[in-house]
Amino acid sequence: MTPLVSIQQVSHGFGAGPVLQDVTLDLAPGSYTVLLGPSGSGKTTLLSVLGGFLTPERGRVLIGGQDCTALAPARRPTATVFQDYALFPHMSVGANVGFGLRMRGVGRAERDRAARAMLETVGLGEAFARKPHQLSGGQRQRVALARALLVEPAVLLLDEPLGALDLKLRRQMQDELKAIQRRVGTAFIHVTHDQEEAMALADHIVVMNRGRIEDEGTPERVYQRPRTRFTATFMGESSILPGRTAQGAITTAAGSFPAPPEATAVAVRPEHVALGGDIPATVIDVVFQGSYKRVTARVGDSDVLARVGAETPVAAGEAVRLAIDARHVIVLRD
């Protein structure tokens, strides 16, 4: 399938250091892509490049086969949902949602009808005549979404859209975002630093760090087989065990695992570490998390995290033996 969005060797720098370095990315029509990374990783800059608020110093951006690199935001088939929603405070919700159609010369009756229908789609049918300041954060979020969707963009760009909401509302809006995306079929590109949010929403995760793409793929693939050390630690928790390779295996403090010669370390997820194996370790810390206990144990010179049942009798200072599920060990090459 031809990609809907094609970012080709995009680089951009703001004086001090590069913000985007040689970013190349293809995105499929109708997909839900999440750009995931810590602050300063360049994910928001990449979104600005896609939205047309920033022209990159090098590289090209194609949307639907058209070169949009230097095209103004209004002239490209994208619409942006801003982090602070950026609703027009002096207009009613209906006028906010209909603004894009008004700019396209659509008559009042027609755009009001379309705005009402779109507000229904996002579950805010009753808010048409209200003012933005009368709405809650979650409702404003939906108005911003409806306003951007009404201009029928080929790609909808969302800049940390759930960042300002509390945890419970965030989980609820995640489900709704996904449902709305399926209903309208528009490709969504969503920026966040929250890896749980990324896994809950994305068909395609793009992990960014220091202006580069560290890894990209389905959430399952990126979580289970992260390509880099950064991805292994940023997408969920991992313990890193350095080792040395010889004869098709890497030897670490916690045993040997099959690995290619260029391997430098292995990463282990806490859920793949259990008590009752043959790796001697000392428990440093135990944190009760409700449904499980998070155990930090020292193996050689490295700390290994384990997730054990909440009932397990284990305390700091104890000597224990750990088991690592070799099938799920992640081999790192960087």
Partner: peptide, 16 residues
């Protein structure tokens, strides 16, 4: 700066 973002949104939606 908040208003600057609101203006960006208006431009994005096609306002001259």
């Amino acid at each position: 700066e908040n208003q600057a973002n609101i203006e960006r949104a208006a431009r994005d939606l096609g306002a001259s």
